[in-house]
Design a protein around this nucleic acid. Structure first.
Length: 109
DNA sequence: AGCCTGACTCGGA
DNA sequence: CTCCGAGCCAGGC
C-alpha cells in the first residue's frame, strides 16, 4: 500500500468501536477524516490479514453484512456479532437505530 | 506504466 | 420501493 497512513487511520477507528455496537463503512471513513471514501474502508479491511481489529463490527449503510468474495465469512461475521448481543432482523439486517456506534465526534449522527 | 477489480454510499429517476 | 451512475483509491497482473 502506498499511503499506509489512511489505512492506519481506518484501523484506529475500527479498533475504537465498542463491543456490542456496529459502525458503517461511511461512518468509519468520516471519523478517519476520509469523508466520502467509504469504499476505501472496505478495501482497507479486505487488505487486513491479522485479527488485530474488530472488522466484524463494520457493516454497510443498510445495516447488512456486505457480501464478499468468500461467502463463509459472511456467516462467521454474523455469528460474531450475535455473540456480542447484536440482533438481526428476519432480513438479516441490524437495527442501526439500536446498535450503531454513536461517537460524539460524528456530526452526522 | 496502464487496465481491471472490489468488505461502499448517495442522490435522482 | 428498486435501479443506475458517479466519486474514490489501493492492489494485482
Amino acid at each position: 500500500m502506498k499511503n499506509s497512513t489512511n489505512y492506519q487511520r481506518i484501523y484506529e477507528m475500527v479498533r475504537q468501536i465498542p463491543r456490542g455496537t456496529v459502525a458503517t463503512y461511511g461512518q468509519i471513513a468520516r471519523l478517519a477524516g476520509l469523508a466520502g471514501h467509504a469504499r476505501q474502508v472496505g478495501y482497507a479491511l479486505h487488505a487486513l490479514k491479522d485479527q488485530a481489529v474488530p472488522w466484524h463490527r463494520v457493516i454497510n449503510a443498510q445495516g447488512a453484512i456486505s457480501a464478499r468474495s468468500i461467502p463463509y465469512y459472511e456467516k462467521r461475521q454474523r455469528h460474531l456479532l450475535e455473540e456480542e448481543g447484536i440482533k438481526f432482523s428476519p432480513q438479516s439486517k441490524v437495527s442501526l437505530a439500536l446498535f450503531q456506534w454513536k461517537p460524539l465526534r460524528d456530526p452526522k449522527i
